[in-house]
């Protein structure tokens, strides 16, 4: 490199060579005000994957510390909701359940729903809850809501074991469709994170979000076919209904686990498209607002 420098005497090259010498592999970081929409910098998030892992791990570790029932809470939530639904909607209101025993019909929907709604409400509070980190250390802020949603997967797995137990009790034999479950979980995750990104970034500016989230999840729950089947609607309304991505998740779970018919092909396509749109929009909005976090949080 030195030889080149003396031979060529090109000022630009000299400077470049010196720069390389100064920092062999790291390009200089330029710190300045960014305007408008900015790139997602997903590569940087990937570079910080160990932090993502540790934050997720911390959330899991801490979630049930100093509770008497511990991880049982992961099961209690959907289980009790199922009991209430079975009594009021199943027994008293005689809501149809696609020919499947009502308790397992509701529970198969409640487990992904609980994953979604917990992820949504926890991630929307995640930035404000980690404000000390945001004010004192630099790292891609995306890791905070992402790790929050990811840590819910452990709770989901526990509740899912419970689903399998109930299927055994009701003698429902799982088919090969069970293999779709990871993808359906991913769909729930994408939806939860997408909405979580929007709300967490908004929450930094407007604490109104904190008050709106419980209402939002409740409203969303009743507009998702958890207590009732989406087969109450005829086509094309049923597919249109799936613009709520959780319709796809819930009906997908029932189809994959309990074998409800028809297979929710169109529903899943509609739901996935909307979920991806929410996620991408949320990620860009989040990145755009990111620069103000440390100042206003």
């Amino acid at each position: 490199m030195k030889v080149q420098e003396t031979e060529l005497r090109v000022p630009g090259l000299e400077a470049a060579a010196a720069r390389r010498q100064a920092a062999p592999d790291i390009p200089p970081i330029r710190i300045e005000a960014r305007q408008g929409w900015v790139s997602l910098k997903l590569r940087e998030v990937w570079e910080y994957r160990e932090l993502l892992f540790f934050l997720t791990w911390r959330n899991i570790q801490v979630r049930y510390k100093q509770t008497a029932l511990g991880v049982t809470w992961a099961i209690i939530q959907p289980l009790f909701t199922m009991a209430v639904f079975s009594l009021f909607f199943g027994r008293l209101a005689k809501v149809p359940s696609d020919g499947i025993p009502y308790p397992i019909f509701a529970f198969a929907a409640l487990v992904p729903w609980t994953f979604f709604s917990n992820g949504l409400s926890q991630s929307s509070n995640s930035l404000v809850g980690n404000s000390n980190l945001i004010k004192k250390v630099y790292f891609p802020r995306l890791t905070i809501p992402v790790s929050t949603v990811l840590s819910g997967v452990v709770d989901f797995m526990l509740a899912f074991v419970m689903v399998l137990g109930m299927m055994f009790y009701y003698r429902i034999v799982p088919t090969a469709n069970v293999l779709w479950i990871p993808l359906l979980l991913l769909l729930a995750l994408v939806t939860s994170l997408g909405v979580g990104l929007w709300l967490s970034a908004l929450n930094v500016q407007y604490r109104d979000v904190q008050h709106a989230v419980p209402f939002l999840t409740q409203f969303w729950m009743f507009s998702t076919p958890i207590a009732y089947p989406s087969s109450l609607l005829s086509e094309p309304w049923r597919t249109l209904y799936a613009l709520n991505p959780m319709v796809g998740v819930v009906e997908g779970f029932r189809w994959a686990l309990l074998g409800t018919q028809p297979a929710p092909g169109a529903i899943l396509i509609a739901s996935s498209l909307v979920a991806v749109l929410i996620l991408v929009g949320g990620a860009f909005y989040f990145r755009r607002m990111e620069k103000t976090f440390a100042d206003v949080i």
Partner: peptide, 13 residues
């Protein structure tokens, strides 16, 4: 890089 400058820039190697 916790907060952004309003004007100007800094370069770090």
């Amino acid at each position: 890089r916790i907060t952004e400058p309003t004007v100007g820039f800094a370069e770090i190697r």
